[in-house]
Amino acid sequence: MELLSQMMQLLFSGLTLGAIYALIAVGFVVIYNVTGILNFAQGEFAMLGALTCISLVNNNVPLWLAIILSIVIVAAIGGIFERTALHTARKSSVTTLIIITIGVSIVLRGAAILIWGTQVQTLPPFTDNTPITILDAVLLPQNIWAVGISIVILILMMYFFNYTFVGKSLTACVVNPFAARLMGINPEKMSLFAVIVSAGVGALAGTVIAPISGATYDMGMMLGIKAFVAAVIGGLTNAPAAIAGAFLIGILEAFTEGLWSSGLKDVVTFTFLLLILFVKPEGLFAKASGKRV
């Protein structure tokens, strides 16, 4: 029984981590699909979301409002980032644009040190955090929030991309940017939209994880890299696969941490990434694809 409860415990924390990675990974995939850019500032959106939310709560803004406001603020920052850093350089090569995103992530981290300092800050849990016991494993309500919110957001995003006209036109930009342009779809508008959505979702991920692991100026980097690993596992272009990849990474990390050593969890994750890149670089869930000419 001891072993089972331990396994459940690890599974729960893995799912929580996975849910957070999934939100950020979807942002990666959306931006990559629409613009062809790997946005390495993606994790910083989570950091900004978490820290903004904490500041708002410290200034007596109710928690729910603080979460919404921080999402809006970070989405706006994402929009400014796209217009100033990416849009103005849109004629440059993709490599240049990717390096720009790395630059922006450093700037955002630097700004965060100036505003919030280097101390770990905490956000109160969304609701009363009395642990719940399931099969002898202890589960915190915040973990349920994290998983639940992620699932709801991910379902909403799937719905948006597959069933709404705007979502479909975004997908069209992804599938065939040239044809999309010929239909009068403006890819630059779509790129702005993609970054805003990804930033907002990233911010939400940050506010969800802040009560669990705290928030610091440099939390974005690891979150971003892990989400990137998840996206690569999913083949970078496929959002559902990236989500599956995110949960896989989350669970893998939790089990490594619990059964082996917490110092080794990153090692295991990145070894896994390298394995994927060597063995199945098109992503773990890639289907054979072809194009009719």
Partner: peptide
């Protein structure tokens, strides 16, 4: 309106 060469349809839609 241009119907482009090689059709260029949105293959996954």
């Amino acid at each position: 309106c241009l119907v482009p060469e090689r059709r260029q349809i949105f293959s996954s839609l």
